[in-house]
Amino acid sequence: MTPPSTPRDGGDLHHSPTAHGDHSIAAGTIRNVFIRWAVHPSARWLPLLLACAALVIAGTTWPDGPARQYALWGILAALSLTTAAARVLIRRRRDARVIAALSLVSVLATVGGWLAFRNVVLHGEIDVTGRVASQGTQPLDAATHRTLTLGLDAPALKEPRNALRLTLAIADHDPAGPTCLPDSSATVSLTTSGVAAQQQTVRPGGTADFSLGAQVSTVRINVTLSTARGCRMDIHPTEATLYDR
């Protein structure tokens, strides 16, 4: 194997015998300038500092929501930190091309990670399960006491999203008594002003999806239980997520 050519005393690094024309010369010049900057002692810690700064800012403005939506950001953050750390550890000037490549990958991964993070902040899923207010007494039954209302108020809706995903647990009020789960379901109706009325039926543990359209200030959902005679059931949201369709 032919060893890669190495720069000597910071001279011209672009000596490709196949390079021709103005574009090739310009590209070679840019590469040489970048490599000179990358191997300069003052730039040794810069990619790592940049990656750490992005990580700290992301940590302080963390918007929560499901972990899976941070996968791309996590991969890029890990890549930027790893390559930046590797760049710090390599000190030999004859590894200039490796140093330059590590610096470039680190900076690009930091920028990419930051963009991925901002995308999550602006369009990612927001977990509002703990903010769903429930009105109505439980347990519900098949006769006169069948309905409760779930609501999300302005503070939970401050980040604009155009859809809501709601998962409902429907459980026997007395798990030691006969089970009514096979005969139970709930009709969930969105009754928010300014949004088209929507109705869906969910089985225990099922999920309803509602379109919220433009920004809404409050969300109201009526939940009506359908079950067999004599059954008494508890209904509560196990997951409520705002997201962009």
Binding site: G177, P178, A228, R229, G230, C231
Partner: peptide
């Protein structure tokens, strides 16, 4: 007169 839900 019945009480509660059906026993299965």
């Amino acid at each position: 007169i019945t009480f509660g839900s059906a026993n299965h």
